[in-house]
Amino acid sequence: MGYYIVQPEVAGDFGDNTVLDFSVEPAVVTRLEYRFSDWLGDAILECTPCFIVTEALASAITDAGLTGVEFDELEVSLSPEGEELIEEPLPRWKWLRFTGKAHQEDLGVDEDFMLVASERALAVLREHGLNNARVTEVTP
């Protein structure tokens, strides 16, 4: 099965309600507030080490039986920049949580915090909007 490195759009940063656990290395995010500064329209976004997807994409991932992920709740907010730049209402989002290993599951994160997608996972992502991501095929 072929794999791809997907580097999604970064539409914002961690809001004030984000909680990081620094007792472990690297620090892990235990509560996520994704604060939008802008949005160019993709269905999967990143703020390292976190990835979020639209609810529609989350449903599609589930329906397609893609492995390696589950979903969690997050808080979404707008920065002052976002309030000025984002004209349309944002869709609803889910926090992508990884349950397996990159290059083995359909979706995973490698040791460099890069999203790794199988060919069939990439197809699902593209159906829902991946115009602003960089996609690189992983050479074996």
Partner: peptide
């Protein structure tokens, strides 16, 4: 602006990793 956010995101990664 999007490119700037991406660049900063990439900047943070090695520090997070280590």
């Amino acid at each position: 602006l999007s490119a700037i956010r991406i660049a900063w995101n990439d900047f943070y990664k090695p520090f997070r990793k280590s």
